[in-house]
Each structure stands twice: as C-alpha cells, then as structure tokens.
Design a protein around this nucleic acid. Structure first.
Lengths: 136, 136
DNA sequence: GTGTCTTTTGTTATAATGTAACGAAAGCGC
DNA sequence: GCGCTTTCGTTACATTATAACAAAAGACAC
C-alpha cells in the first residue's frame, strides 16, 4: 500500500509521518532510527526516540518504509504502489541499498545482474508458519 | 567450513569456542547473545558479553554459526561442511528456524514446500559490490 | 461548539544488543 | 625458557529499541 492509497483507506498521514517520510526520501539511503531522530530534531520535528520508532513502525507496516535488519536501518520504499515482498542489494563498500521489488526470489538474481551488482552472498529469509504451527 | 576441516587448517577450536558451539547445538534454536551468555555463565564458562560476541563472530566467520538479523539471534549451522550461503524458514508462531542450505535463491521456495512451511513473506538480502564500487 | 471516544504524540525511564580498549593469559615456534 | 601471536578477561560504554503513562489532537455524534 503506498502513499495515495493510504489516505483513501481511512489511514492518517499525519504531519510527523509525512515529515519522516519526506526526510527519508530526501536522504535516499538507509538511515538508523537515531540518525533520523537527530535529523528531525534539528528541524524541531521530533521529540524523542519513541516517536520516531512509532512512525517507522507505522510506515513499515504500510510498506512505505522497509527495515534492513542487517544494517539496523530503515529505507524509504522505492517500489510502485503495488504490493510485493521487497528484497535488497546491499553494497558492502558504500553501504548503499537498492530495493528489488520482486515477485519471487529467483528474480532477484536477474535484477542484480541488470544492475551490474557483483554478488558475493545472498540470504533468503522466509517467514510464515512451520509445519506444526500451520496445521492447527 | 565446518568442524572437521577447521582444525586441519590451523584454526583453533578452543575450549570456549567448543563450549559455545556445544551449547548452541544443544539448545537447537535461535538464541540471543545475552541468553547464551547467561546460559554459559551458569556453568561457569563465560566471563562477560564481549567474550561471547567474539566467539560468535569467530564461529559465524567460519560458518559454524549463522546470525539471524531479524531476530537479533544466532543459530548453530546444521548444513554439511560444504560451504553454501544459508537461508532460513522462520516460523512467526513458534519462532523456530529451519536452515536451508541452498545453492540459489530459487531453490529456497522449493525447500519451503518440501518442509510443508506455509510461506507468508520472503526477503532476499544480497551483499556484494554495487556497480560503482565494483567497477574499478 | 461541546462532550466523548479513539488515535497520535510527548516524555521519562529503562531494557536489550553490541563494541572499544587494554591488559593478562595461553598457545606456538624457536 | 623466550619472544611472538592469538585468545580471553574485564571495565566501561555506545547503540538500538521499548514500556508505560500523560497530554494533545482528531473524529464524530449530538
């Protein structure tokens, strides 16, 4: 779900949320929650870490932002409104990240090729229900 | 590189490292560094967090242990000595994890099927060098 | 617009995770 | 044993994240 479809579903893109999202799009790279907090605080737009984390949680839940656990960082979603699981090319040198909006893991390798990204390692995280928990 | 090939390459599987690895195999689930620390401390086998982190770093570097960033946890490698990138099926209900020793991301989906794991989301993390950093 | 309810934000304090730095101890080669 | 390298102990601290509760703002009926 992306920005447009957000407000049309009863969701509230409040001032703070919009500020955070704008900041992230402006920065255009993975940012830590505290870095974001400092950035917003300079402009008098954030009070304390919990506010930032709440907004990040909200934006993440609505797929406007993605969390990058390996970097303990967050990045603005660059994909089309259409919902997909997101994957990432993470450069170990410059630490920049390219989002891959992929319908399946197999496509991600092709996308890396297209970006002239020289792949060293990959890891697929699949979440869901294991055999036991899913068979209720 | 796994246990056997470790000592035959000049690497030292010291007492502490062996204890940590044994504990992790015994627990047989993702454990946080501090949980592991407490566990070891009860048995008089660990001094302080840095020791645990150092050993985890070492074991991770040698592929005897994997880190699960989404859980801030670590798990003993269950794959064959043969080196592969590791992927994971993470159950959101019981929090247990199954390692997939996969030659390519595409295989991971098939492996999930084989395990009767009901997939809800996936994310592929690819690390390497981006176009700019890799071209020199 | 007032009152009421829900959602969002502010605020304080603290938990959980991870590291820097440095000296002591243990292993290794000679 | 002696010097060198690696590992470990120890203290202190940095970074990331959350619990809990009060205040403020928005939605909505009346």
């Amino acid at each position: 779900m992306a920005l447009n479809s957000l407000t049309s579903h009863g969701e509230r893109l409040t001032g703070l949320r919009r500020d955070v999202l704008n900041a992230m799009h402006h920065l255009n790279r993975p940012v830590g929650a505290y870095e974001l907090f400092d950035h917003l605080k300079e402009k008098g737009r954030a009070s304390a870490p919990p506010a930032v984390y709440r907004v990040l949680d909200y934006l993440t839940a609505h797929d406007l932002v993605h969390r990058l656990p390996t970097l303990s960082a967050y990045t603005a979603c660059t994909a089309k409104p259409h919902r997909h699981d997101a994957s990432f090319l993470i450069c170990r040198a410059c630490n920049n990240v390219e989002e891959i909006d992929s319908p399946a893991p197999a496509d991600v390798i092709a996308a890396a090729d297209l970006s002239n990204f020289s792949l060293e390692h990959f890891s697929v995280s699949i979440t869901g229900l294991c055999r036991r928990c899913g068979q209720n």
